[in-house]
């Protein structure tokens, strides 16, 4: 086989392979090549049970970011959730963050209810208003033991 033909075929093969690899890692694996179009804010929750890092952050049902990481704050005894919000999305400083479940057994995600304040949370800032995860078992046991008001 001629060298040029060999090189062409190998070139096509490598190109197809790399395209597939890129599709897998960027589209499916959500690998970020450019990290500049996000900013980080954090929020403290009394309980985040079930929320995982990588969970989506939604406003009005539209994904605007992801949960970056969740750490325990020993001083105040709360869970601190770091969120990566897309750069174009501005959050008022009275926005309410709540941990919600998709359906009854679905994934946990973070819902942001937009506030009316004029002030905008800066990068690295904190969301003050939070609502913890609804504990479905607790609700159920309250219902069974008849303590629902």
């Amino acid at each position: 086989m001629k060298r040029a033909a060999l090189e062409t075929i190998v070139g096509i093969f490598v190109l197809v392979g790399i395209l597939c690899l890129a599709y897998l890692s960027i589209k499916l694996g959500k690998m970020e090549l450019i990290g500049g179009d996000y900013y980080e804010v954090h929020a403290d929750f009394a309980s985040v049970s079930g929320l995982k890092s990588g969970a989506s952050v939604e406003i009005a049902g539209v994904e605007v970011g992801r949960v970056e990481r969740i750490v325990f704050e020993p001083k105040s005894g709360v869970a601190r959730v770091y969120l990566r919000i897309r750069a174009g999305v501005e959050l008022a400083d009275d926005v309410i963050a709540s941990v919600r479940t998709r359906g009854i057994i679905g994934d946990k995600f973070l819902q942001l209810k937009p506030g009316g304040s004029e002030k905008i949370i800066a990068a690295g800032g904190r969301i003050r208003e939070t609502e913890s995860a609804i504990d479905f078992e607790e609700l159920l046991s309250k219902y069974i033991h008849g303590q629902v008001e």
């Binding site: 890692s25 499916l28 694996g29 959500k30």
Partner: peptide
């Protein structure tokens, strides 16, 4: 569902 459940870790470990 596919994009939601596949993580970078999965792709990486496969490679």
């Amino acid at each position: 569902e596919m994009e939601k459940s596949v993580e970078w870790k999965d792709v990486y470990s496969g490679i």
